[in-house]
């Protein structure tokens, strides 16, 4: 009996050790959500308990956020920028990755290295000169500036990730099709891409997440209320002067994360595999 029990006790101990990590990871989200649902009276009661809701929860902060601010416009901008930037980057990244992984041509190795290096250049190094470029091409204070600039970090990322996936597709499958008379582009379109679908999904998810979460470019290149993205709107427009509306602020933080959370719940395994592939491959 004690022999059979020991694995159980061990398992219990492991879970007990994991608990602090889980609380650390999840508590901020719990507290954000809780704050967004509390009535102001309870929120600003210095003798209240911040860990639970005692009085009736309320949606007034959400209502205020949706009807009294431009939150819906910011979300729409975020969606527009994210979808277009992700789509464009995915196409450019896919063909570049295919060429770098499969084709032999002039300077292919050094171009591959160049793209990897670009992938490592942080946005905070380039935002100042890029702001000038954005001015010159007439996109100052426009969400289209973000559509144009986000691919600079999305394309290297997608290319790098997809190169790894394309290398795992056996060359023979493709050559077989070409022997049967298909051109290389047909073979890519009908044979290689369908096999690489998991990689494409992964790249699309990460590109979507990266551009939805992008902050420094959005903060620098846009400022008008009808051009900014959700992150910038919530952090700059809801904080005015010294009076903070914590309820609405937290409601904005929660709602601004919803699209990513939805994707995340449905595609968790892709996130896990992409995270390791992006770094290690």
């Amino acid at each position: 009996m004690p022999v059979a029990r020991r694995p159980f006790a061990r398992k219990l101990r492991i879970h007990a050790l994991l608990l602090p990590f889980l609380i650390f990871a999840l508590f901020p989200f719990y507290h954000m959500t809780l704050t967004s649902l509390k009535q102001d009276r309870e929120l600003y009661d210095r003798h209240g308990v911040p860990l639970i809701i005692r009085q009736a929860p309320t949606l007034e902060h959400y209502a205020k956020l949706l009807w009294d601010t431009e939150f819906l416009t910011w979300t729409k901008n975020s969606l527009l920028v994210t979808f277009i930037a992700t789509g464009v980057s995915l196409v450019i990244g896919t063909i570049a990755a295919y060429a770098l992984a499969r084709l032999k041509f002039f300077a292919v190795a050094s171009i591959g290295t160049g793209i990897f290096v670009t992938y490592l250049v942080p946005t905070s190094l380039l935002f100042l000169p890029l702001a000038q470029v954005v001015n010159w091409i007439g996109l100052a204070d426009s969400k289209w500036a973000l559509v144009v600039t986000y691919p600079t970090f999305l394309v290297p990322f997608c290319t790098w990730l997809l190169m790894g996936y394309f290398r795992t597709v056996p060359k023979e499958v493709e050559e077989c099709a070409m022997v049967d008379g298909a051109t290389r582009i047909q073979a890519l379109w009908r044979i290689v891409l369908p096999i690489a679908v998991p990689g494409l999904v992964c790249a699309a998810l990460f590109a979507f997440t990266l551009s939805w979460n992008e902050f420094i470019y959005a903060l620098t290149f846009t400022s008008s209320s009808d051009q900014i993205t959700a992150s910038v709107g919530v952090t700059s427009e809801l904080i005015r002067g010294d009076i903070y509306f914590w309820g609405s602020l937290m409601a904005g933080a929660v709602l601004g994360s919803v699209p990513i959370v939805v994707l995340y719940v449905f595609f968790l395994d892709y996130y896990v595999s992409g995270l390791t592939a992006g770094a290690v491959k």
């Binding site: 989200f29 954000m32 919530v234 952090t235 937290m250 933080a253 959370v261």
Partner: peptide, 10 residues
């Protein structure tokens, strides 16, 4: 995965 700018607000 959550936007850092927003979770940092929390």
């Amino acid at each position: 995965v959550i936007p850092t700018a927003l979770s940092t607000l929390g």
